[in-house]
């Protein structure tokens, strides 16, 4: 079709009308057409495009088998370009992780030293580290031994290896949570929605044993059982531990673990953007200054 249109229009363009001088023959323009004609053409274009768009949209039907909810955008108070993470929320989220998530999920890339001055004092972080037993060694006799954790130690792994984790969870591997937020579409929104989104399966969907229905999880059935309930833990700062509060705090905490440089990054953004703006203005001034001589002259050439 394009070929036909192209051919006919090319022929039309090539046909030089005798009344117009040769110079103007090469252009196609709407300038000379009447207003009514212009409106008619524009309307025809809009109707055609809209019609095609509507047809495409109607063709994309929703299939019941692929029902998957996408998380809504929640107004996280750290999502702005210059907004820092809420440290109290991160701290609460840490305790939620420690008391709920850490039973199954590892966090292999976090060290206790990362907590210091992020949301804990050094003494608190040392006390947190000392709560876990870390395998160290070999000692003088060549044996491995257990000792209380230190700041230089990683978070403990609930399972010795992935196989043990699968065996304990009906074949499903609980993912490492350190970088889970950037690793999932929707980030914190997805984590929050998943944690609070457990519900009974709708009619027509049968959920097998040992798996659970969650509309936010791709595929709808998830190996993880609902983990967060109201008042499942108690916050030490007295915040009511509702399910959504727990989910919000742990999502914020997981954002922090995936990006412990989050606040520094945004602080650097302030500096970088303002310096570059200043430099841009100055560069523009200097360019005009240098080009004035060239720009403010007129050259005419004689035949």
């Amino acid at each position: 079709m394009a070929a036909i249109v192209g051919r006919s229009s090319r022929q039309a363009l090539l046909r030089a009308r005798s009344s117009i001088s040769c110079q103007n023959a090469g252009f196609v323009t709407f300038k000379n057409q009447s207003t009514g004609r212009k409106i008619a053409l524009a309307a025809a274009g809009i109707v055609t495009t809209g019609g095609i768009g509507l047809a495409v949209a109607l063709n994309q039907s929703v299939l019941a088998g692929e029902l998957e909810l996408h998380p809504p955008k929640y107004p996280w108070n750290h999502s702005g370009y210059l907004d820092a993470l809420d440290v109290t929320s991160v701290r609460r989220g840490y305790f939620v992780y420690k008391q709920v998530c850490a039973a199954c999920h590892s966090m292999n890339y976090m060290y206790y030293r990362n907590l210091v001055d992020a949301f804990m004092t050094e003494d608190e972080a040392k006390a947190e580290a000392a709560e876990v037993q870390v395998v160290d060694g070999p000692d003088e006799e060549g044996k491995m031994f257990e000792r209380p954790g230190k700041l230089a130690d990683k978070f403990p792994n609930p399972y010795a290896n992935p196989e043990a984790a699968r065996a304990a969870n009906n074949g499903a591997l609980p993912p490492d949570l350190t970088f889970i937020v950037p690793a999932r579409h929707g980030g914190e929104d997805y984590i929050f929605s998943l944690l609070t989104g457990y519900c009974d399966p709708p009619a027509g969907i049968t959920v097998k044993e040992d798996v659970h229905y969650n509309p936010y999880f791709p595929g709808g059935t998830i190996g993880m059982a609902q983990a967060l309930y109201n008042e499942i833990i108690e916050y030490d700062d007295g915040t009511p531990a509702t399910q959504s509060q727990l989910a919000k705090d742990v999502s914020t905490f997981l954002r922090w673990t995936s990006e412990i440089e989050h606040d520094t990054r945004k602080k650097t953004a302030i500096k970088t953007l303002s310096i570059l703006t200043l430099l841009m203005v100055i560069t523009y001034y200097f360019k005009r200054h240098r080009w004035t001589v060239l720009k403010s002259r007129k050259l005419t050439s004689q035949k």
């Binding site: 200043l278 430099l279 100055i282 560069t283 200097f286």
Partner: peptide, 19 residues
């Protein structure tokens, strides 16, 4: 004025370069 603007630009560049 022009020298001042250029000087300010150099200061900002020096700051950025140092960082």
């Amino acid at each position: 004025f022009t020298y001042m603007v250029i000087g300010a630009g150099s200061v900002a560049t020096a700051y950025a370069a140092k960082n």
